[in-house]
Amino acid sequence: MNRTLILIGVVCVVLGVAWPWLRQLPLGRLPGDIVIVREHFRFFLPLTSCILVSVVISLLLWLFRK
């Protein structure tokens, strides 16, 4: 449990430091992400971005398990 918490903390720090570069990735603006903009209303569903992130995380976990 201690090792897991330390790993989560390290990942959070790395993501925080890399945030200026991560913001420039096109996540959230991919084809398949649904955006509905109306007067006084905005709905955003990052469908494709969520699938892409899920696939990348699954592959990384699969590689580290072996």
Rank of each mutant, 00 (worst) to 15 (best):
P26W: 02
E39K: 00
R65Y: 15
L15H: 11
L5G: 11
C12N: 02
L27P: 04
F41G: 04
V56T: 12
V11R: 02
S49H: 06
L22S: 05
L47Q: 07
F44V: 05
L25Q: 14
R38M: 08
L61A: 03
V35N: 06
I8R: 11
W19D: 01
P26Y: 02
I36V: 15
L7N: 10
S49N: 07
P46V: 08
R23E: 12
L47E: 10
V35L: 09
L30G: 02
P26G: 03
W62Q: 09
L5D: 11
L25H: 11
L63C: 08
L45T: 05
V17Y: 09
T4D: 09
P26D: 14
V53W: 14
V35M: 01
L61Y: 15
L63E: 07
G28L: 05
N2W: 09
L30Q: 08
M1R: 14
F44H: 14
V53S: 01
F44Y: 15
L25I: 07
T4Q: 14
L63Y: 09
Q24N: 13
K66G: 13
P26R: 05
L59V: 15
L45A: 12
V56H: 01
F43A: 05
R38K: 08
H40N: 09
L15Y: 14
V14S: 06
V11K: 09
R42V: 07
G16H: 07
G9H: 01
L59K: 11
L25S: 10
I51Q: 04
W62Y: 14
W21C: 00
L7H: 10
L15I: 07
R23V: 04
